[in-house]
Design a protein around this nucleic acid. Sequence first.
DNA 1: CTAACATCTGTAGCGACTACAGACTCAAGA
DNA 2: TCTTGAGTCTGTAGTCGCTACAGATGTTAG
Lengths: 138, 138
Amino acid sequence: MAATGAIQIGELSRRTGCNIETIRYYERIGLLPAPPRRGRYRSYGREDVARLGFVRRARELGFTLDEVRALLGLAVGGQASCAEVRELAASHLKDVRARIADLKRMERVLADSVRACDAGRDPGCPLLDTLGAEVRVA
Amino acid sequence: MAATGAIQIGELSRRTGCNIETIRYYERIGLLPAPPRRGRYRSYGREDVARLGFVRRARELGFTLDEVRALLGLAVGGQASCAEVRELAASHLKDVRARIADLKRMERVLADSVRACDAGRDPGCPLLDTLGAEVRVA
DNA sequence: CTAACATCTGTAGCGACTACAGACTCAAGA
DNA sequence: TCTTGAGTCTGTAGTCGCTACAGATGTTAG
């Protein structure tokens, strides 16, 4: 009597916020298992919703698909792998911080240039000067 | 008697720090003009070094190639377009700031999880919990 | 029965490169 | 002179993480 909870790809998409095409893409690259079919249509269950939700959240944290794959493996493996998970996350965190630092450097330069432009005392265009104005002479 | 300053692609690469393949790619997509040839080899001059330098610096500031194309157009156009340059830069700056905000959100969550993991009081794996631990039951 | 919608497969596109393979040119050394 | 090595050439395909079709098939409501 219990509902099987079997859903189609559209419903899975709605529940996870993941694009249908993306779901099929994940299947193609082996990130999600190929589900059984009802006729020709993919039929998903509870675990699929959970697994895809996991993937989505990991992606939102900026993990690459390869990292997500690894995380999924570790997650299924049980608590033994907590240290490995920590390792992965820490390394990814380092990565994220490096990207933030990069962007902040860009931000500073851009903000400075725009501010100089607003001040408008510069004889040329401060932004173009930053980038190497001699191109204009070409 | 004055040196023509004509250089080959390898030297251009060395002077700008831009990969040879990337230079040819830029030419293919019309970001750099196709230079004259000495025999079969591309022959570059001073302006090419300047122009590619400009491109590289703009890329380092995170401008897309389309934005760089626009900037190049404006740079050649003279000072009349300073306002447009400002516009482009300001919009890109907004973009950069949004990306920083995104990454900072990721950083917070990741750092929290890693810290929780280090504390080690959690019964499961804090990181996997964050991502939706029920996957493990699958 | 028909129309509307969902799903299917397969392929190609994006941005910004990067990495070949396989041909050629050119200068210096034995 | 011949060779060897470095540099350059064109063209194509791969990367990552999707996204967007085209065109076929399936299911459901009126």
